[in-house]
Amino acid sequence: MSNNEDIGQRLQLVRKIYGLTQRALSRRAGVTNGAISLIEQNRVSPSISSLKKILDGIPMSISEFFTLDLVPSGEVFFRDHELPDIAVGPKITMKLLGRQTKGRAMQILHEYYEPGADTGESMLRHDGEEGGVVVRGTIQLTVGDKIETLSVGDGYYFNSQLPHRFVNNSDGICEIISTNSPPTF
């Protein structure tokens, strides 16, 4: 495959990933629909300035165009029943998303705290940052010397080296979607 074929196929893939028809991209970029068609068919090799003009319609830089990995490697979608429970305490469920994903830069958890659940009297501490949003119920969160009860729609974000603890003092289940970076599990 020549460079021309790489450019044509890559442009077509990028355009489709961004949900653009040739006509929509041509309008956004200010070029003719025929020009995009010819490039994608590898019948014309675009100049750098022409390619830049087309990519500005996405928008995407030339370096992103040539270096971006456009095909997902490994799994992308995960079903609830496939998520391993990595909770370390009773009355707590922590389902980990993408555990087998190589080189993860973050950790995403779907957490459930039953009434009376507590991450422990010893405060948690680890490297990185974490954040989350309560999607059901309430949770009492202690971070350093601050204590707050969070409800549906409330969130948190903090340096994970600060001592922290989660407690469900309510009579209902608390559900949280959270993330940590870097991953600790």
Rank of each mutant, 00 (worst) to 15 (best):
N169D: 05
N169Y: 01
S160P: 04
I17K: 11
V143Q: 11
S45A: 10
G34F: 09
E130A: 08
N169I: 00
H81A: 15
N4T: 09
G89I: 00
G132Y: 04
H81Q: 15
S63M: 04
S47I: 00
I86K: 15
E75I: 00
Q161M: 09
S122G: 05
H81L: 15
G8E: 03
E75Q: 15
L124F: 07
S49D: 11
P72R: 01
N4C: 06
L70E: 07
V88D: 13
L70W: 00
H110A: 13
A117K: 01
R43L: 11
E129T: 11
L11W: 02
I86A: 13
G120N: 10
E82L: 13
N180Q: 12
I39P: 04
C174Q: 03
I39K: 02
L141Y: 05
T67G: 14
N3P: 03
I7C: 08
K52A: 11
V143C: 08
V143F: 08
I147M: 12
P72Q: 01
I92K: 05
N159S: 05
V133L: 14
G34D: 08
T21F: 05
L55D: 01
R43Q: 14
Q9F: 10
H126E: 03
K102G: 08
G98Q: 10
A24Q: 13
A29G: 05
R10D: 03
P163V: 00
K16D: 07
E130P: 11
N33T: 07
L51K: 08
R28T: 04
K91V: 04
T138S: 09
I176W: 01
I36C: 05
I62W: 00
K102M: 06
P182V: 00
G131C: 15
S181E: 03
P90M: 12
Q22K: 14
Q100Y: 11
Q161D: 12
R27D: 12
L68K: 11
G98I: 02
F158C: 02
P115D: 14
V31K: 03
L83F: 14
D56L: 03
I177L: 14
R79V: 01
H126K: 01
L124T: 06
Y112S: 15
R27N: 09
T142H: 05
A29F: 02
E175M: 12
S63F: 02
L13F: 06
P46F: 06
P183M: 11
T179I: 12
I139H: 07
I173C: 10
E114W: 03
K16Q: 10
L150V: 00
F65H: 04
M94P: 04
G155I: 00
S160D: 05
E82P: 12
G103R: 14
D127C: 06
L162V: 06
G89V: 00
A29K: 02
T67C: 15
L96D: 09
N168F: 00
K102V: 05
S26L: 02
G153E: 08
S37E: 04
R104S: 08
T32H: 08
P90N: 07
E75H: 15
Q41D: 06
S2T: 10
